[in-house]
């Protein structure tokens, strides 16, 4: 199943994660993300969570790992469009103190 779509334009690498993020799915997202970051060497990495309905703490590890890698290559790392349920777990871990979170995806359901 497809877990990640990417777009690379003007040195901005957008990684759009599709579906649930848990320990199981994090493995392939991690591998694909890391090879894209290494290959494209972007100046900005956008981690697009608009298509993620569920995320547990494995997602926190996934995000922190990609944030660290982006810093290592000198790229800025941002999270964009998390759903409310995803935002709650990001806030629980205090991710916003470390990583910029932009745009919400909180249309009333």
């Amino acid at each position: 199943m497809e877990k990640l779509r990417f777009n690379y334009e003007n040195e901005v690498l957008t990684l759009k994660i599709i579906g649930d993020i848990d320990h199981h799915s994090a493995v392939s997202v991690r591998e694909q993300s890391d090879s894209l970051i290494f290959e494209k060497r972007p100046t900005i990495v956008l981690f697009d969570l608009s298509a993620v309905e569920f995320m547990d703490s494995s997602g926190l590890g996934l995000i922190l790992g990609r944030f660290t890698l982006s810093e290592e290559i000198g790229a800025e790392f941002k999270i964009i469009k998390p759903a409310r349920s995803v935002l709650r777990i990001l806030e629980l871990a205090g991710i916003e103190r470390l990583i910029k979170i932009e745009g919400d995806n909180n249309e009333e359901k």
């Binding site: 994090a26 703490s57 494995s58 590890g61 996934l62 922190l64 629980l92 871990a93």
Partner: peptide
Amino acid sequence: SGERSGMGFAVMST
């Protein structure tokens, strides 16, 4: 590995 956040029980209790 640096890929686990150590937040599992914190999530459960919250």
